[in-house]
Design a protein around this nucleic acid. Structure first.
Lengths: 154, 154
DNA sequence: CCGCTATGCTTGCTTTTTACAAGTAGCCAT
DNA sequence: ATGGCTACTTGTAAAAAGCAAGCATAGCGG
């Protein structure tokens, strides 16, 4: 009775634990969700096929599921472009607030993955001027707002 | 050819993407791994049965799998207590370095979960004096090396 | 020394989720 | 009107998670 959903990201055994770590994992505690957020935040990817071609090889049904879930969680919104074919997805403020988490993840991986693809300059900025870096990225994300103008979401 | 392993946390479709987000998700991109890290970091839990009783209801085989995986990833070590029954698990420096990520997750969840169980004072410290808070927790973790004696809870 | 209990797992089986391959629907251009 | 592109949905098989038992070892009590 507690779950109508089918997946781990939305239903760790559905217990009412309000531990903050648990709460977060209900939203993005799976292998794909944060990759979509990453694409929206750091790469210029914002359409369905952008995500599909992102390189890690997500399956189409999983992608559709995760996008719907992120929408329901209030982390992304979908804009249907009136003229162009294809929807664009965008991070909401709640989604943009995942930025500090991603920055820490990047710092950790840069430290422990000997073959990391994280640019050195970027990692240095994470350590030395995180606040400024954060503001810059947030500004860039907001700037992307106007491209298709129409808002339409579930 | 691409995978010998069996799980999402260890094998996002095994591609050689060295994207730092991807790298991190290979290690802890599932619903349970970070809960174990949380138990080791913020709660006093360090034994197999401690984790089992942690409240979220992890299955025993999954727990065994995640502990083995965390060990292989160099995030925890196991100490067999010579006299006491039961092994104790402990975070390595690599594991302790996950702290900033967890702190940001806690901050995010505290902001967006209206029923969060995160203590206000703790969240305030995350925002206002993260460095000092980090040092304090690290010190406490190192202090636990000898055996379970200290307090420190969320 | 023998059985009892507690801890730390492993094994077998069922249910749920993911992966993979197709197929469909809407839009627009030619 | 048809062909191609984008954004999905559907069907099915493989993989992982959930669940309930079982088993091994260590310590102790008698």
């Amino acid at each position: 009775m507690k779950s109508k959903s089918t997946s781990p990201a939305e239903a760790l055994p559905g217990r009412p634990s309000h531990c903050p770590i648990h709460f977060a994992l209900e939203t993005f505690g799976d292998a794909w969700t944060l990759l979509i957020v990453r694409d929206l935040m750091f790469k210029e990817r914002s359409t369905y096929t952008d995500f599909l071609r992102a390189g890690e090889g997500i399956a189409t049904n999983i992608l559709a599921d995760r996008l719907a879930r992120l929408g329901r969680a209030g982390i992304i919104t979908r804009e249907r472009a009136g003229d162009r074919p294809g929807s664009h997805y965008r991070l909401t403020p709640k989604g943009i607030d995942l930025l500090p988490i991603l920055l820490e993840i990047i710092a950790w991986s840069a430290k422990y993955d000997p073959d990391t693809a994280a640019p050195r300059a970027f990692v240095r900025r994470v350590h030395r001027e995180r606040a400024a870096l954060g503001r810059e990225i947030r500004r860039a994300l907001r700037g992307r707002k106007q491209s298709a103008t129409k808002e339409m979401n579930s």
